[in-house]
Amino acid sequence: MGDTPLGTGSGTPANLGGTAPRYEVHSEQYLHLVMSAQLKLSLKCFAIFVVILVGVPLVNFYLPEIANTRIWGFTLTWLFLGVLFYPLTWIIARIYVSRSLALEDEIIARATWEEGRMNGG
């Protein structure tokens, strides 16, 4: 798993293919590109969890009639935290890993070397 070829992650990050600028590996711009691309992806994925972790207590507190509606024996909020939350982590992690690995391939493609290309490991 996770060996997804470039582009199968749902919605490939910005098309950086051949037209995108390339930078020298040790340059400031290149490091900035690498860090900000990965950080943006991580922050996007984590934002979903921030919404859940901040939101669930708020719903429980201010909308108890919704949170405590009985569904299939459970209360809605119990069903969410006790059961449905875990598959959600899997989906987010799956999306993150495939897109992050695709991003790494692009990062490699956008590197140039001063003294000609070196062979990667």
Partner: peptide, 17 residues
């Protein structure tokens, strides 16, 4: 620090490992 950050974030494929 620049080199350190590169090592932390750049994929192994570039051979900076």
């Amino acid at each position: 620090v620049h080199h350190k950050m590169l090592v932390l974030h750049v994929p192994e494929g570039l051979g900076l490992k």
